[in-house]
Computed example of a mutant assay.
Amino acid sequence: MDAIVRSAPAPAPARRVVRACELAVIIPAHNEADAIAGTLDALAWQTAVPRRFIVVADNCTDATGPIAAAHGADVMVTEGNRDRKAGALNQALASLGGAAPRFVLVLDADTRLAPEFIDAALRTLTADDALGAVSGLVVGEQPGRMLQQFQADDHVRYGTHIRATGRVSVVTGTASMFRTAALRDVAGQRGATLPGQRGDVYDRAAIIEDSELTLALKTCGWGLVAPEQCVWTTELTPTWGGLHSQRVRW
């Protein structure tokens, strides 16, 4: 009887730890107890694992903070924030102070990064000093109903647009890595050539903070790209009311 030959399992991808002086991950979260664990678990399986990730618990009334801490995150609680996500991110970035790393990854609390995202984004930014930010291509989670399929199709169309034109319309707040020097450039020009308050990276008056930051970075002359390897999965809105509110805001 012939012996059964089984192929050896594929080796796990090599992983390295990214020093805290090179990268910090900031995750703004408002009542994200149901999602935050999965987002942090995806970070732990990156091929380049960040040593420091900060969950910004913004006016939370649920267990977001304790769950994040149990998954190894530093938890920062916002103080008196009334400026939504922009205000939470400004507080988190200011807390880095003079010890800010070379790069900062801003990540939504309901986003799952593909394993190569961080490694690819770091390599892209390191290779070109003119780049201010790296975004990527979004994939919707498995649609459970027709409404979610419509949203998943939208994400596919946006990815096709980027591949065809090479242009990044929005350095999305869902998942983007920034050069700290570029963020400081924007903060220094707020209240002068850029709207907002001097010292703020994000304009507190902007309803869509990531779109405004994209325009600010372009105004300051920074390049923006979305590499093919930088992919993430995001939740899809299950209700018409939620989708309407989201699209009106966009």
Rank of each mutant, 00 (worst) to 15 (best):
Ile4Met: 11
Pro11Tyr: 00
Pro11Asn: 04
Ala12Gln: 13
Val17Thr: 15
Val18Gln: 05
Val18Phe: 05
Arg19Val: 09
Cys21Tyr: 13
Cys21Leu: 12
Ile26Ser: 03
Ile26Asp: 03
His30Lys: 10
Asn31His: 07
Leu40Thr: 03
Asp41Arg: 13
Asp41Phe: 06
Trp45Ser: 11
Trp45Met: 12
Val49Glu: 04
Pro50Met: 01
Val55Asn: 10
Val56Pro: 00
Ala57Gly: 06
Asp58Glu: 04
Asp58Tyr: 00
Thr61Asp: 11
Ala68Cys: 05
Gly72Asn: 02
Val75Tyr: 01
Thr78Phe: 01
Gly80Leu: 03
Gly80Thr: 03
Asn81Met: 03
Arg84Ala: 14
Ala86Gly: 04
Ala86His: 02
Leu89Gln: 00
Leu93Gln: 00
Arg102Phe: 11
Val104Gln: 01
Arg112Val: 09
Arg112Ser: 11
Ala114Lys: 08
Leu125Asp: 00
Thr126Leu: 05
Asp128Asn: 12
Leu131Ile: 01
Ala133Val: 13
Ala133Thr: 07
Val134Ser: 01
Val134Lys: 03
Ser135Arg: 07
Leu137Ala: 01
Gln142Arg: 12
Met146Ala: 14
Gln149Ala: 06
Gln149Lys: 11
Ala152Lys: 11
Asp153Phe: 06
His155Ile: 13
Val156Ala: 14
Tyr158Phe: 15
Tyr158Pro: 00
Tyr158Val: 15
His161Thr: 12
Arg167Lys: 15
Arg167Ser: 14
Arg167Asp: 10
Ser169Met: 13
Val170Ala: 05
Val170Trp: 09
Thr172Gly: 10
Thr172Trp: 11
Gly173Leu: 01
Met177Glu: 04
Phe178His: 10
Leu183Trp: 02
Asp185Asn: 09
Arg190Trp: 09
Pro195Val: 08
Ala205Ser: 14
Cys220Trp: 02
Val225Asp: 04
Gln229Arg: 10
Trp232Tyr: 13
Glu235Tyr: 09
Thr237Met: 12
Pro238Leu: 05
Pro238Ser: 04
Leu243Val: 07
Gln246Lys: 15
Arg249Asp: 15
Arg249Asn: 14
Trp250Cys: 14
Trp250Met: 14
